Simulated assay, not measured.
Amino acid sequence: MSVRHPDRDQIRVEDVLSAMGNHLRLEVVRLLDAGGEHNCTSLLNVLGVTAKSTMTHHWRVLRESGVIWQRPSGRENLLTLRREDLDARYPGLLDAVLTGALTDSLTPASRTRADSEG
């Protein structure tokens, strides 16, 4: 399996923001921000998504935007947040987005909207 990862200098802010503009992908970024490599199945379980095909698209968007590394490992793929690259390209951006997402998740209006979407 050949996967495309942009080099650090090819990462574009509009692609990063677009990738994190989806609530599932933003949640993946939040989970990966805890550190380490995570296999796709473990993330699916945490996210409560049952169809792997649903997330295949999301992995590709995150990978091709430069937000994550994805590497094959046996029958699984391991995912890692490209924090070092993102921080070097856009200092403070990832922290600001993750802080904003946390703040939004704590407001009643955000919880109501997320419940109606899910």
Rank of each mutant, 00 (worst) to 15 (best):
M1N: 05
L26C: 09
T54V: 09
V16I: 13
L98K: 00
L44V: 04
R75T: 05
R4P: 01
T107K: 05
L79V: 04
L102I: 04
G118E: 11
T54G: 08
E14F: 06
D85Q: 13
S18P: 02
G48S: 01
M55D: 02
L26G: 01
L106W: 08
S110I: 01
D104G: 10
D7Y: 10
V61K: 15
L102W: 09
D115W: 15
Y90E: 13
M20S: 02
T112I: 13
L24T: 14
D15L: 11
E64I: 06
R111P: 02
V49R: 03
N77H: 09
R82A: 14
R12S: 08
A34D: 07
G36T: 06
I11A: 04
L43W: 05
V61P: 04
S18K: 09
D104S: 12
R30Q: 15
D33F: 12
E27M: 11
V46H: 05
D104N: 12
H23C: 03
L44E: 14
V46W: 06
V13G: 05
L79Q: 06
L94M: 10
A101M: 00
M55N: 05
T107E: 05
E64A: 07
G100E: 00
A34V: 02
R4V: 14
E37S: 09
K52S: 12
R113P: 00
T112P: 01
R82Y: 08
A114S: 11
R4C: 11
T54Y: 15
V28P: 03
R60G: 02
L106N: 06
R111F: 04
I11Q: 04
L24V: 15
M20K: 10
A88N: 12
D9H: 14
G21W: 09
E84N: 13
T80N: 07
S2Y: 04
P108M: 03
V29Q: 00
A96K: 00
G48V: 02
S53H: 11
D85I: 01
M20P: 11
L93D: 02
W59Q: 04
S2N: 08
R89P: 07
R63H: 13
M1S: 10
L81T: 00
L62F: 02
P6R: 00
L93R: 04
L26H: 06
M20A: 09
G21R: 05
L31E: 05
T103F: 03
G36Q: 08
D9V: 08
N77F: 11
N45A: 14
I11P: 03
D15T: 02
R12H: 10
E84T: 15
V28F: 01
L102K: 13
C40L: 10
D9C: 12
N39W: 13
L86F: 07
G48L: 11
A88S: 14
L81G: 03
L62W: 04
A51D: 15
L24Y: 12
G48Y: 14
G35E: 07
N39F: 07
P72T: 10
R82G: 11
R111L: 10
D15G: 08
S65T: 10
